[in-house]
């Protein structure tokens, strides 16, 4: 278990990248990845919550009695999620409208609670920070990849710019809910193929 800070950070980018390796946090993954903009917005919001919650949990882990730790983690996480929600409303209202209910739902994102419980409560501040940042960036990358595939195939555009010739007939199916499952499954399959070598 004696990993360096660098390893704690890097593991979130491939070895334990959510939602592919840690198959957690599927609800926002499937729901908001209709466009790259939403995917990145969601990833950044989650990363912020993850890093802050990890840091605070690791600082307070000595004080929090183990029997009520989950309740305490939820208070900490919910606080940061509300912070994100308010800031997003004030400075990025359009994104807030797009992500809608999925912002408050970060509270129950298993990735965040999972990292608090499995990692931050047992580790010191700096490794927890590295872990949160790594997993968060990994999550953001995954969402970006999924949403890039879905948006380009589903609408023929990427961030509003045409990527396929206009003769390309978009698979509108990809931006619907079932398309999210299929896209996630295929990407997971590709990752497993690469990982096997």
């Amino acid at each position: 278990m004696a990993k360096t800070i660098g390893q704690e950070f890097v593991k979130g980018l491939w070895e334990e990248i959510p939602p592919f390796r840690l198959v957690l946090g599927l609800c926002p993954t499937l729901a908001v990845t209709k466009s790259v903009e939403n995917g990145i917005g969601m990833g950044v919001a989650t990363t912020f919550v993850l890093v802050c919650a990890n840091m605070l949990v690791s600082i307070l882990s000595g004080v929090i009695p183990s029997r009520i730790r989950i309740a305490c983690f939820i208070i900490i996480i919910a606080t940061f999620v509300t912070v994100v929600e308010l800031i997003m409303q004030a400075y990025a209202y359009q994104l807030f409208l797009n992500l809608g209910i999925f912002i408050p739902l970060i509270v129950v994102n298993c990735i965040v609670l999972g990292r608090s419980e499995a990692f931050a409560s047992k580790n010191k501040l700096v490794p927890s920070l590295a872990d949160g940042l790594g997993i968060g960036i990994g999550f953001t990358l995954s969402l970006t990849v999924i949403s890039a595939v879905r948006e380009s195939l589903g609408t023929g555009k990427l961030m509003g710019a045409q990527v396929f010739p206009t003769s390309f007939e978009p698979f509108a199916f990809m931006v619907e809910a079932p398309g999210a499952f299929i896209c996630l499954g295929l990407l997971l399959c590709i990752m497993n193929l690469i990982g096997k070598k």
Partner: peptide
């Protein structure tokens, strides 16, 4: 007692912070 104190302190800090931000 410790559990109650921890929860109360944590919740009120959180409430205070969010109130100020709001």
């Amino acid at each position: 007692i410790k559990m109650v104190v921890v929860l109360v302190v944590l919740s009120s800090l959180s409430g205070g912070l969010l109130g100020a931000l709001k």
